[in-house]
């Protein structure tokens, strides 16, 4: 469990980058932090793994304040994927890179080799490849793999999908979602609302060092006040369902106005059309050329 209690933080000791931020993330949650550039999302991530200590308030990991823990101790609990994989990768081969975390933490892990092999198998890496020569997506996957091979109970991801193409992005997110299903707490910073809507269970929206909204993904994405304050655009399905809901009361009361995913939206539209088919006029649009006509 991760707990922020009135946390303020600053880099130079003067300007507060975070201002009294509080939230609690229970084990097994999947949280996305969203918000404008410079809102303080990365700073929040740094606070979680102790790279930065709060200037006021307290960050508690499983009830222990990070102020009393070294980052290297926290590394066993919190895996951290940086936005730029090149800052993380430092070994000569893919295999060494995957082993690096075990060595760095001095963890005597009997099945380290086995886990590394499993990871190589799962991601389809060439174990002897030179990490720096891999392409951008593969480097990102390698950085991710070298974190999740350690099987930390919490993983923190700073913009894990930025700069990846659709296929790589889905690959990364499916792996992360798989970890979450098996109980890992996932905390990620994400600018892509489609990814956020597809994967996150909960969204924390930030602007200028404050938490603007915190709640289940679609409650946050459907809150016009939050969207405006955090300068967010909801995912396209949510956007279209909200817009259609505004057009006519009949749609607003149908499941179209509550559809959050492509599947839900297609089902809702199909149901809507079916139920209005053969009625002659479409009550939804109030004209003869309506949807069901």
């Amino acid at each position: 469990m991760i707990e922020f209690r009135d946390v303020s933080a600053s880099y130079d000791g003067e300007l507060a980058v975070l201002d009294r931020v509080s939230f609690t993330i229970p084990n097994g949650d999947f949280v996305a932090f969203v918000g404008t550039n410079g809102a303080g999302k990365s700073t929040t991530m740094r606070l979680i793994n102790g790279l930065l200590k709060p200037t006021a308030g307290d960050v508690l990991i499983d009830g222990v304040s990070t102020a009393n823990l070294r980052t290297s101790e926290l590394a066993a609990k919190v895996g951290f994927l940086f936005q730029n994989p090149d800052r993380q990768i430092c070994c000569n081969t893919v295999r060494e890179e995957l082993m690096f975390g075990f060595k760095a933490q001095g963890r005597e892990c009997a099945d380290a080799e086995g886990r590394v092999d499993a990871m190589i198998e799962r991601f389809g890496f060439d174990p002897d490849a030179e990490p720096f020569l891999l392409n951008r997506g593969t480097r990102q996957l390698l950085a991710l793999a070298s974190i999740i091979v350690l099987e930390t109970p919490v993983i923190v991801l700073d913009e894990p999908t930025t700069g990846l193409d659709f296929r790589e992005c889905s690959k990364v997110m499916e792996i992360i979602a798989g970890l979450n299903v098996r109980g890992t707490t996932v905390i990620m910073v994400c600018h892509d609302m489609e990814v956020t809507a597809d994967y996150a269970k909960r969204v924390i929206a930030m602007t200028e060092g404050h938490v603007v909204d915190d709640g289940p993904t679609f409650e946050v994405l459907r809150n016009p006040n939050t969207l405006q304050r955090a300068h967010l655009l909801p995912s396209q399905i949510v956007d279209i369902s909200m817009r259609l809901g505004d057009v006519a009361p009949a749609i607003a009361s149908s499941s179209i106005a509550r559809a959050n995913s492509l599947d839900q939206m297609s089902t809702a539209i199909y149901e809507f059309i079916s139920s209005h088919a053969g009625t002659g006029a479409s009550p939804a649009l109030g004209s003869d050329e309506g949807l069901g006509a």
Binding site: S72, A75, F80, R87, C90, A104, G106
Partner: peptide, 18 residues
């Protein structure tokens, strides 16, 4: 700045620079 970032990334993986 780069070096600081790299050291930060390695610290997060458990390397102790202190």
């Amino acid at each position: 700045n780069d070096m600081a970032g790299i050291m930060e990334a390695q610290t997060a993986r458990g390397v102790e620079f202190d």
